[in-house]
Design a protein around this nucleic acid. Structure first.
Length: 314
DNA sequence: CGGTTTTGACCGGCGC
DNA sequence: GCGCCGGTCAAAACCG
């Protein structure tokens, strides 16, 4: 890492005279004495700030991408809601499933269908005994997976316990039944079955609402930062099994923590030029050499768009 | 050993 | 009433 990367930074360690006022101000802020060596450290601090700002920009860009993706997804869902469902048209559907499908057709997304649709389902199932069904919120999620993968696992961040599997009449692929096992009293169930039209698509039908926070949120708030856990279910971008923290986050948290210690004026040598250089080198090497960072970034982006991220439908 | 998965049995709704 | 069907149960197997 070289400060010459930044055109705004002048090669001050080649100068004998006093540094510029701007640099002096920075030195005062850092509580450092002015010396040639510390000037270098200060430039590294500036570089650190620049990299931090760049990180922030990248994070914002990612957030914008996520927003765009969500907007696009809702458009797709609206579009899908308008076209008639093949599933309800081309095969035998019992009355019970007809009611379920009809209730599904009026749903655009999980948030929007929280109230009205469950009521409409209630009218048909008023005589049903199961209170869960009456109050349930049903949503359907399509997930593209490898067709050779027979596990019927949809990674949505929640913890599921499989309690049954059936081969249904209208689809040769087996249907798996799951209950949410993250919280003992959580009433949510889901059914996962391969799409009849496209074997590479898993159709998971969620029934009910979780009465507990999303596990990834819980982890994020409980201190074990797994990095990039920025979206709730069903986006499974980050809380994959890797549990990897991105180099970006490591460097960022490290730098902020260090700055805090430094401002407190402790005896740590954290604000020494050597340490700052070490810090910057660590950040640089993390960003450039660590393949996991690229992989995590690629997974975060592609995962939202293609693979891991389910497309909610209805 | 406790939690999860598997899988056949069972149950209830529905159509005939 | 009977058979079909989807959904659930529960015992055994499996696994970390």
């Amino acid at each position: 890492m070289d400060a010459s990367l930044d055109p705004n930074i002048k090669p001050i360690w080649f100068l004998d005279e006093a540094p510029k006022k701007e640099l002096e101000r920075n030195f005062v802020e850092l509580g450092l004495n002015i010396s040639v060596k510390e000037e270098k450290g200060n430039s590294l601090v500036e570089e650190l700030n620049r990299v931090s700002a760049e990180n922030k920009r990248l994070t914002e860009m990612l957030a914008v991408m996520c927003e765009n993706y969500n907007a696009l997804r809702s458009q797709v869902m609206n579009y899908m809601a308008k076209i008639p469902q093949k599933e309800t048209n081309n095969t035998y559907v019992s009355k019970k499933r007809k009611a379920e499908s009809l209730s599904n057709c009026s749903k655009n997304n999980k948030e929007a269908n929280a109230n009205s649709d469950s009521i409409s389902t209630d009218d048909d199932s008023m005589k049903k005994t199961r209170a869960e069904t009456i109050k349930s919120k049903i949503s359907r999620v399509y997930v593209r997976t490898d067709p050779s993968d027979t596990s019927l696992v949809v990674k949505d961040g929640y913890q599921w316990r499989k309690y049954g599997q059936k081969v249904t009449r209208d689809n040769p692929s087996p249907r798996a039944y799951f209950k949410c096992s993250f919280a003992p009293s959580c009433p949510v169930k889901k059914k996962v079955q391969r799409s009849l039209e496209d074997q590479s698509v898993l159709v998971s039908t969620y029934e009910g609402e979780h009465n507990h926070p999303h596990p990834s949120k819980l982890e994020a708030t409980s201190g074990s930062n797994r990095g990039m856990t920025m979206s709730p279910a069903p986006c499974s971008v980050s809380h994959s099994s890797s549990g990897r923290t991105s180099a970006l986050e490591v460097a960022k948290s490290k730098s902020t923590n260090d700055a805090k210690v430094s401002n407190n004026g402790s005896e740590q040598k954290i604000d020494s030029p050597e340490f700052q250089q070490f810090l910057v080198e660590q950040m640089a090497s993390s960003l450039t050499k660590d393949p996991s960072f690229k992989a995590a970034l690629a997974a975060a982006i592609s995962g939202r768009i293609l693979h891991d991220n389910p497309i909610e439908k209805l």
